[in-house]
Nucleic acid binder design. Structure first.
Lengths: 195, 195
DNA sequence: TGATACCAAGCAAGCGTTCGGTCAAGGGCG
DNA sequence: CGCCCTTGACCGAACGCTTGCTTGGTATCA
């Protein structure tokens, strides 16, 4: 059909197509035949580009986590102020999440499936670093007096991280812009809903 | 084997077993053979009690939504104050969610699967009522001056409802008690993390 | 000529579901 | 008491279908 210019550009396109499906139905619920249909080829032909369905998932997940971790590292490197750091984390995450919708859906839907396999051990590693980063910033904020001293750091981290990842799963509705979501999120996190 | 006292007590037990599996892996990812294994019978024997796998899911989901809606209705009936109403909603929801872990996992993992079928049309109906309730209370709070006037009501509702349902998906860890979670949740919602 | 990208066909395994048969428990009845 | 017959719970084996994946062949183009 449409011929790709550079080698393996076709491959990247297939990953993109598969990702769109994963983002809507999850990894397990998406069949290789559906992916092939979206690409206009037969299911068997996919195996000319990938050696398994898991490889496609692997590519999507590792690319996502690399970007996320890069954003986290930059956020804490540039800033001394924990509140600014968290705000920076929120901004970089939101950008990454809208670019990697598929990865997050996979993590939420099929975490049990992936996290059990040795091949995806890096998932746990990355999650640990994310947790560590949040906890450090929250603790620092408590010490400087910017955050409430009575915060349960670990509980707050779990809530904040998951809250941050929520809007991604909202069907790509044009209801709210990314800016609006970031705004609503930040104000909620820092100030709550009370006047 | 063990004989049940009342008729269809066995059936209720099977629903319980299936629910435990659904809560961990989701509905689609759980096979009837796994359910049967957990019960110590063969997969085919399940069909003596249920006419399909979907029926089990139906039973779990409808029971959950009935309880949730009852909690919402009671919360807004008894209270004139919107802040108290929301606090009441949070409390009743948390109780319901810990009792119906399976249902929420199913809604999060397999929403696309269920919401498409006519049989599960009540899912959309119930969600609409939940949304309506939240929005009413948020609007009232804005009018009385208790909540910030610049809140995007619909966006805030989506955030709050999803946030409320988050902790359920946290594996039944003994890390935090229900009381702790409610506390952290309420303080975060109303006051944010700032000191 | 030899990669590259794909087709056509099919495999084994797993899925939800069906169906005829077995077997113990228990009430009705002489 | 002893017999029969219903009933509920389950087994064993299979069904049709879908799954991820394999294999041998073909067209295209450098």
């Amino acid at each position: 059909m449409t011929q790709s210019k550079s080698p393996s550009e076709r491959r990247a396109h297939l990953v993109q197509l598969a990702g769109d499906l994963f983002a809507e139905k999850g990894f397990r619920a998406t069949t290789v035949r559906e992916i092939a249909d979206a690409a206009g080829i037969l299911s068997g032909s996919l195996y000319h580009h990938f050696d398994s369905k898991e490889s496609i998932g692997d590519e999507i997940l590792s690319a996502f986590l690399e970007d996320v971790l890069a954003g986290y590292r930059e956020a804490v490197r540039d800033t001394a102020d924990p509140r600014t750091a968290i705000e920076q984390i929120v901004r970089s995450s939101t950008a990454n999440l809208s670019r990697h919708r598929a990865a997050l859906t996979m993590l939420q839907n099929d975490w049990n499936y992936f996290s059990g396999q040795p091949r995806f051990a890096y998932l746990r590693t990355a999650m640990k670093e994310i947790e560590q980063t949040w906890i450090e910033q929250l603790e620092r904020g408590k010490q400087t007096g910017q955050f409430r001293a009575d915060l349960d750091t670990r509980l707050t981290y779990r809530l904040l991280r998951d809250i941050l990842w929520l809007p991604t799963s909202w069907r790509s509705s044009a209801t709210w812009s990314t800016e609006q979501i970031i705004d609503g999120l930040l104000r909620l996190l820092f100030d709550g809903i009370r006047a």
